[in-house]
Design a protein around this nucleic acid. Sequence first.
DNA 1: CTTTTGTTTCTTATAGACAAAAATCATTTG
DNA 2: CAAATGATTTTTGTCTATAAGAAACAAAAG
Lengths: 296, 296
Amino acid sequence: MKTDTVFKRAFNDALDLVSRIPDGGALPSENTLGARLKVSRTTVRKVIAALEAQGIVDGDGRERVVRTTGEAMQPFPHSETIPMAAQVEERFMEWLLRDNARPGTAINELELARQFGIATTGIREFLNRFQRFGLIEKRPNSGWVFKGFTESFALELFEIREMFELRSARALAALPDDSPLWAQLEALRREHLQLLDDIETRFHDFSDLDSRFHRLISSAAPNRFIDSFYDIITVIFHFHYQWNKQDERQRNEVAIREHLTYIDALFGRNIALVELACRAHLISAKQTLLRSTSQQ
Amino acid sequence: MKTDTVFKRAFNDALDLVSRIPDGGALPSENTLGARLKVSRTTVRKVIAALEAQGIVDGDGRERVVRTTGEAMQPFPHSETIPMAAQVEERFMEWLLRDNARPGTAINELELARQFGIATTGIREFLNRFQRFGLIEKRPNSGWVFKGFTESFALELFEIREMFELRSARALAALPDDSPLWAQLEALRREHLQLLDDIETRFHDFSDLDSRFHRLISSAAPNRFIDSFYDIITVIFHFHYQWNKQDERQRNEVAIREHLTYIDALFGRNIALVELACRAHLISAKQTLLRSTSQQ
DNA sequence: CTTTTGTTTCTTATAGACAAAAATCATTTG
DNA sequence: CAAATGATTTTTGTCTATAAGAAACAAAAG
């Protein structure tokens, strides 16, 4: 059976939306709600039915009104709104980290399915998608093997990353002055400065900013294969941040400063400086990653 | 239920193996057979049982002998030895080519499953793996969309291909003289010359030679992400060769000559010449691919 | 005649079942 | 006791079933 995370997420969003409508105000049409909540009308109707059951929506057909005076609205717990696929990824990463991260470890679909409390189909589907990240490999009719978060993995990853990033940075620097990307880059620059100010408390927010920064650069010359490679980078770094918490604040601070130099070089349109700043940043990012790879 | 393609393939291979044993000769041990046929002992025993049923193997336990005097051995049809996953890929490509190759076409799992005569699970698994080829995209809770074999697809593919190939070619040219790759390259050069001699009749063989040549080059500096990208190239070209048969002989002849120039440049260790030959070849390959992309 | 709701049909996501194949454990034989 | 066969257990590949969700069709209302 399908999970109903779509419905639950939509319901929670609907509560939010409805709370901004005054008591007695008309409920938007099903089509409008569908567009806002990003679900089909079928799900909208299910949400409305649930709202009615909680007494938040009254009347029927074309004459539905919002009642916000009643008792507190009860949203579903956040965890029940996460699609299964996303949960599996999270849990798999945790599993790698906690238990069996040695290169060569066999991955047993059945065991994972039992441990995660889902059917083997879900595990299989996840592993098939995860395969492209280069960390696991399939042995037909036998299982999967974890190839390990090794030094060679990090080196190979960064070789490609450097090629892609340099190429995108050059493309960005060559963009005309009226390209909207410059404004976006300026906004990101400000975000970097703000984060630097609050670094003591907000250093965890760097991960997301980092990902957005590098994605902005590669959007200067879109290429689906490069974009897809950035998905890998993002996941690996997310994984890595959980793995290695050592010196996190300090590392992030250094990275922010490197980004700022890099951004300034881009604004300066000086290709040589851009390449220098880009390489410098990637080298330090590589060192960080290398420090937490497993030996062999 | 699982298909028994593993057993059937192993059985056919076993027939081949057994036919080289004189009548009355001893059958190799189950372990030996397993190693030779690349299957588990469980399957070996199933194969032996089938051979016994056909009267090709006689006796039991440790005293099994081969009987090759009986009637002709009956292998399973080749089509029954191909694993389902491989069949699906083939059929899906055909389907794209024949029916619905327009960009934006919706892909319906259920319909494909019915058309291919397999369960939806098989289709899903295939599509999830095929996703990385950049030709299809998933809409959660809805289906998949074929993004089209478009000009931008070809351009994006070749942008990456050029980066990777140049990098590998430089690495190969920098290899020491005693690297075994030079001998392999020389062997490939001879194969190219032979194919050129028989080009009128054997031009179809170029596809495979091409793939092996480029894979040899990238093996000069192995990188899992580049290797994985070559899988994409290989499939796309296989697909493209079926799509566009126009001038195939002539195109392949040109490509062989380009390869030979490229190989000579590599043997000459002259980086500038290598880059020149590599670029020239990739440009002409790109043109070929572009000519058969769908507009828009 | 466009927009909205009501109803029906079709597709996707997930679970569950089971034969094929692999892996493990046990026994025999040279 | 090492290597082979015999028997048993576990896991993978594939099918079928079904609720959740999307999409299509139909009727009603402004």
